[in-house]
């Protein structure tokens, strides 16, 4: 049997050993170039990515967007997105987009979050600045700005 031909166990037909067609070779190069280009040009076209994993230096000052639930007495607690389910868990990352969106889009997003927790009557979106004096020390809220508020009405 020639070195580059192998019999399949059942069919006894030779398995293909020829190299890829030109179109496949080009596709491979485009594919590898796309991975590189997404990194260089900072493009996120999932599953291609810029791969900016933990790429920004962290300090003791953290700016975050907070989704806060308000109870009947006016007491604020962080909305528990994880408890609302997998579909909500990462939705806090949408807050910067939502506060910039149209009134209709803001309203529908707020309704979605309110539907996620039937006990919540009022939600507020803050841009908050937290500061910790040293790694390991407790972070404290230094300032926050209200960007959006919505209720079930």
């Amino acid at each position: 049997m020639p070195r580059d031909v192998e019999a399949g166990p059942a069919t006894l037909q030779p398995l293909s050993v020829e190299g890829p067609r030109a179109a496949v070779r080009i596709a491979v190069y485009i594919f590898l170039a796309a991975i590189l280009a997404c990194g260089v040009l900072q493009i996120e076209v999932w599953p291609f990515s810029a791969f900016r994993l933990f790429s920004t230096v962290r300090t003791g000052t953290a700016v975050r967007w907070d989704l806060v639930a308000v109870d009947d007495r006016g007491v604020e607690t962080p909305a528990d997105l994880a408890a609302m389910g997998r579909g909500y868990r990462q939705s806090g990352h949408l807050l910067p987009d939502v506060v910039e969106a149209s009134a209709d889009e803001q309203d529908s997003a707020c309704r979605a979050w309110l539907d996620g927790d039937r006990d919540v009557r009022l939600l507020r979106v803050y841009r908050s600045v937290y500061v910790a004096v040293a790694p390991g020390a407790e972070s404290t809220l230094r300032s926050r700005t209200l960007h959006l508020s919505c209720d079930r009405s």
Binding site: R3, E6, G8, L15, G19, V24, A27, V28, L32, I35
Partner: peptide
Amino acid sequence: LSSARARTGSRVSGTAFGWPLRAGLSALAL
């Protein structure tokens, strides 16, 4: 992308069999 038929344990060599590994290795390294 590769359509080459191959079975585990086979020592047959050819240009059809190497590039999926090397292209995958290149993607991994990148």
